[in-house]
């Protein structure tokens, strides 16, 4: 899980792994690794989900956290324009550290789409770059399972 701080990385993992959601923002320090076993095309897959702290001036993501990954999400908060640029920066870091890994962009907080600052053009920009885009909401459980199952399937290809 890569993205700026407070985009909802931890919330997405918690929703997916534990089916819970908290409105309270609790900043992630360091790395939290969760496990979840899923069935992908009749194959049992153990997912190790690395919830990495948000990127900002206080904490920088180390490329070594991404090196061994089979896939990663770049998470962007639809309501915060600033998180788009951070997502693209982290994409560069991840592409350099794990060139073979699958990548999916998650535009989170789809439950409050009326407040989005991220434009359709920006989302299309990501699609044009060849990445899949999924609009998610950890709060309303929108497309969360689909996103994780999808990246698991991509990683198996």
């Amino acid at each position: 899980m890569l993205g700026a701080f407070a985009v909802g990385k931890t919330s997405l993992v918690q929703r997916y792994v534990k089916s819970i959601f908290s409105e309270k923002y609790q900043t992630t320090i360091g790395v939290k690794i969760d496990k979840k076993t899923v069935m992908v095309n009749q194959t049992e897959v153990d997912l190790l989900l690395w919830d990495i702290h948000g990127e900002d001036d206080f904490q920088k993501v180390k490329s070594s956290y991404v090196v061994g990954s089979s896939g990663y999400f770049i998470v962007i908060d639809g309501t915060r324009a600033e998180t788009f640029a951070v997502g693209l920066e982290l994409l560069k870091l991840a592409q350099s550290a794990a060139p073979a890994a699958s990548c999916v962009f998650l535009f989170n907080k789809a439950d409050i789409k009326s407040e989005w600052e991220i434009t359709e053009n920006q989302i299309n920009e990501i699609r044009t770059m060849g990445f899949e885009v999924i609009e998610t909401s950890a709060k309303d459980n929108l497309s969360v399972n689909e996103a994780f199952n999808h990246i698991a399937a991509l990683m198996l290809k």
């Binding site: 701080f5 407070a6 923002y25 609790q26 900043t27 320090i29 948000g54 900002d56 206080f58 904490q59 915060r80 600033e82």
Partner: peptide, 17 residues
């Protein structure tokens, strides 16, 4: 203490945004 500082700093960042 470090976590609290980080939490506060990020909450302030969000408020500033």
């Amino acid at each position: 203490g470090e976590m609290e500082v980080m939490q506060r700093a990020r909450e302030q960042s969000l408020a500033f945004e």
